[in-house]
Nucleic acid binder design. Structure first.
Lengths: 196, 196
DNA sequence: TTGACACCATACCGGCCAGTCGGTATCTTC
DNA sequence: GAAGATACCGACTGGCCGGTATGGTGTCAA
């Protein structure tokens, strides 16, 4: 589908990704999408609603695919999490946009969570689902003897998600691919330490 | 000292901390500091320079005191890092401002690094100094037999700093003190795994 | 044929913002 | 005590922004 609504959504995602939500301009979005402000306000009742739609329709599906699904489907959680981080780091290190602007969900979280409850709720729901998926996978791994008995799966899941936010956030101002790979490998060593 | 310049700096820190740099208003800052726009532009040649001054004169000294000095002075790095995290988590969990708005340096980093090279440089320098301090301390600990031989001190330092960014960033949109304590404890377990 | 409605275009508005500028008061220096 | 520098003051400006009002056009049901 290449409907007007979709084009606006895509242009808005890029505008906000590059300039932040507050810094992004609806006029620019209309222009870039080839539509007009009339069209924009026809589909989204204000700037915030457009932002919410981006979280739910653009960012969340991509996040699920990149981060959550691979963990949900696995039969070996530690290896799956390691592989997911390694793969996503490898991909993003090659992606100049990602190096410059980091993780779109994290960006919105940092900028808008304290200012707008609608954003906070939606973003928090995304991260919570991710934490749950990791904790569940680790719990299953525990029962299979792939994860140490003493490991607090909820705590570890919280830390792993925090690590992702931190690693991607760091890249945003170091612009240093090497550092990202290093911290990724350190995280993998940590994950190995969870094995029996 | 309670000079006009200091009052402006303090008011600006709070305004930007609460509303972000782009969202913060110079008029509000002038008003809140009891000065005027004339005074503000007398001391800072534009909004960006005011932001830079905040990084260097307000945020960095506090960050050194809270995070870097305790690690530099220690004779047991792993325990010092654990204690620093525990203490800062304990402090910030009780601080409603911190829960709502997270780490001031991280906020500025996420918002401004991709948009303004002056911010990026200054912020990156802060984080780099911190990573160095941790890596040095771990290296010293290694020679004293307090840290495993196989540990990559640079990699671990990068991960630890990323964890701080992630944990404080998470708190900002969960507003959940328990989660912060949990991830902090998971980090402490990880740090213990670095011991021989 | 007509009315209703989704879809979009365009001109426009009030408000806020960063930054300017002419002016004044006080303090330093010679 | 003249002259300059420093420390402010506050009205003002031009520009951009989010949002609106209004009207046009194509489609489809009655």
């Amino acid at each position: 589908m290449d409907s007007t609504r979709d084009r606006i959504l895509q242009a808005a995602f890029e505008e906000f990704y590059r300039n932040g939500f507050q810094g992004g301009s609806l006029s620019h979005i209309a222009e870039k999408s080839g539509a007009t402000k009339g069209a924009l306000f026809h589909y989204f009742k204000n700037k915030a609603e457009l932002g919410y739609a981006i979280v739910e329709e653009v960012i969340q599906p991509s996040g699920n695919e990149r981060w959550i699904d691979p963990v949900k489907k696995t039969s070996d959680p530690v290896e799956a999490i390691k592989a997911t981080f390694r793969r996503n780091i490898r991909e993003d290190v090659k992606n100049i946009e990602m190096i410059e602007h980091g993780c779109p969900l994290n960006n919105l979280a940092q900028e808008m969570s304290p200012l707008d409850e609608g954003f906070r709720m939606r973003i928090e729901r995304s991260y919570e689902r991710w934490r749950e998926a990791i904790a569940d996978a680790l719990e299953r791994g525990k029962q299979r003897g792939q994860v140490k008995k003493g490991v607090g799966t909820k705590e570890v899941a919280a830390l792993i998600v925090a690590c992702q936010m931190g690693i991607w956030g760091t890249m945003r101002n170091t612009k240093d691919a090497e550092l990202m790979i290093q911290s990724g490998e350190a995280l993998c060593s940590y994950l190995d330490s969870l094995k029996p």
